[in-house]
């Protein structure tokens, strides 16, 4: 097969699914009400993209996700390193982490609303809580796995306590931190959309819900697909970033 055609061949299955969607909807196998034809959804999508009132919702969702994840990254790394480095911190906070870990974090959505209302704060706090432990435990495992000889080398080259933590423990844990961050990124989208679907007055989840309540199904499908596209793009971008950060692994 010609190499120029290879990408087309690879993505043919997705194209087939799209055609199937369009076909069964147009042929009336299922009602166009339950499954609007793909072309209608794409048309609705386009009109959303050119509608200036659509973008504030996108930015609201993105901002909440980014803020929650960023805070979780900073706090999670500090927590994970402390748990691995200090026996006192481990004894004090280890049990809390272990108890909190199996809690499905979506259970916290109503609580964050009671604490912070239905605006940005409750979503950011929820995402922070949901991402904190995946990042902290990954960091903890990464630091615990750092080669002892690297720590000894650095110490004999004159590194003090903080240098050891920053230059060796943290740097050595970066691959694990990135793995935890990828899990956290997926969790960010789940919690973001869930909480916006449940109760919100802004954001893509809110839009999906409003279009659904208003029976504007092509628009609803288009918003769902926007969220999926954003999740997919974020993951791809993250994988590129991780590959670049870990280029030393050879």
């Amino acid at each position: 097969m010609a190499s120029a055609l290879r990408p087309v061949w690879l993505y043919t299955p997705l194209l087939l699914l799209a055609l199937l969607w369009e076909g069964i909807s147009r042929a009336g196998v299922v009602s166009a009400y339950a499954l609007p034809p793909l072309t209608n959804v794409l048309a609705a999508w386009w009109s959303l993209l050119v509608d200036p009132s659509f973008w504030p919702h996108v930015f609201a969702s993105l901002g909440r996700g980014a803020a929650g994840l960023a805070i979780a990254l900073v706090v999670g790394v500090v927590l994970g390193v402390s748990l691995a480095w200090s026996r006192a911190v481990n004894m004090l906070l280890g049990p809390v982490v272990q108890m909190f870990y199996p809690l499905p974090k979506s259970a916290l959505i109503p609580l964050t609303i009671i604490w912070f209302g239905i605006g940005d704060e409750s979503k950011i706090f929820l995402i922070f809580l949901g991402c904190l432990l995946p990042i902290a435990t990954a960091t903890y495992n990464g630091v615990r796995g750092v080669d002892r000889n690297l720590l000894w080398s650095a110490a004999s080259l004159g590194a003090g306590r903080w240098s050891l933590i920053r230059d060796v423990a943290f740097m050595g844990a970066v691959p694990d931190i990135l793995a935890g961050l990828r899990t956290a990124l997926a969790m960010t989208f789940v919690l973001l959309v869930s909480s916006e679907l449940l109760i919100s007055n802004e954001g893509l989840g809110f839009l999906i819900r409003s279009y659904g309540d208003g029976s504007q199904y092509p628009q609803m499908f288009a918003c769902s697909m926007t969220v999926m596209a954003m999740g997919f793009a974020a993951d791809q971008a993250f994988r590129r970033l991780a590959a670049w950060l870990l280029r030393w692994r050879g």
Binding site: D147, W152, S153, L157, M171, W248
Partner: peptide, 14 residues
């Protein structure tokens, strides 16, 4: 006292 290890112990990210 400088140390040299069997597995080199170079910082792999540097």
């Amino acid at each position: 006292r400088g140390v040299v290890f069997q597995q080199f112990a170079l910082f792999p990210w540097k």
